[in-house]
């Protein structure tokens, strides 16, 4: 875990995001009806979700490790990863709403993708409520670890599987092709994939900062 104190990967993340901010505006994009220039939102809206996935995934990994090891630090990593993931969740949801206003006509059109995203958001809010509801530390850690392990696949189902089974306005769902199939050019990929990696690193960085703060708080509380 020494790498969380090192700087090189944080600098890499910042450079990648700066690159995507500049290239994301200046590289050419396909001219599509309705979307127009808002297609560039792909570089900023989708990476929020990718970043969220990474930190939620790390959280599940450490929840499983906690159940195996019983080490308190593993539980602390899990909770701080979820806390960070929720920030990116909100950013993804709100940026998606703004985009929807101009691509679909309304901020919230009760689209299956939007509705299941809202449900999955509540799923993770329930995780935080659950944690606050249990006072005894080991019990809290164990129960919330189990909850977290179940919440993650349910979130995947809600965000990626259910909307695909019905009609949705969101690309990649229902009868709609994903962006990748027809609209994505290689020039766009040259921005999009670095954006994924860059924002994932930023999210991981924030999670490690929160974890380190939590470690100090934990030490002070136990004194």
């Amino acid at each position: 875990m020494k790498f969380i104190y090192q700087a090189w990967w944080k600098i890499l993340g910042v450079l990648l995001v700066v690159y995507t901010i500049i290239a994301g505006f200046l590289f050419t994009v396909p001219a599509l009806p309705i979307l127009h220039e808002t297609i560039r939102n792909v570089y900023f809206h989708v990476p929020m979700w990718m970043a969220m996935f990474l930190v939620f995934g790390v959280s599940v990994f450490y929840s499983i490790r906690y159940l195996a090891s019983g080490k308190e630090e593993h539980d602390l990593i899990a909770i701080e990863c979820v806390n960070t993931g929720i920030i990116f969740y909100v950013l993804g949801l709100v940026s998606g709403m703004l985009w929807a206003r101009y691509a679909w006509g309304e901020y919230w059109s009760n689209d299956p993708k939007q509705n299941s995203a809202a449900i999955a958001f509540l799923l993770y809010c329930a995780y935080l409520v659950l944690r606050n509801a249990i006072d005894e530390e080991q019990k809290r850690a164990r129960i919330s670890a189990i909850y977290n392990i179940f919440a993650f696949p349910i979130m995947i189902v809600l965000l990626f599987i259910l909307p695909r089974l019905t009609d949705s306005l969101h690309p990649g769902n229902g009868g709609n092709p994903a962006f990748g199939k027809y609209d994505m050019t290689n020039e766009m990929r040259a921005v999009l994939y670095p954006a994924f990696i860059g924002w994932m690193i930023i999210a991981l960085w924030i999670a490690t900062l929160r974890y380190r703060i939590r470690l100090i708080e934990n030490k002070q509380n136990s004194l």
């Binding site: 700087a7 900062l209 100090i216």
Partner: peptide, 9 residues
């Protein structure tokens, strides 16, 4: 973020 990181260190 970097300054927060340094303060934390």
């Amino acid at each position: 973020l970097f300054t927060i990181d340094r303060r934390l260190t």
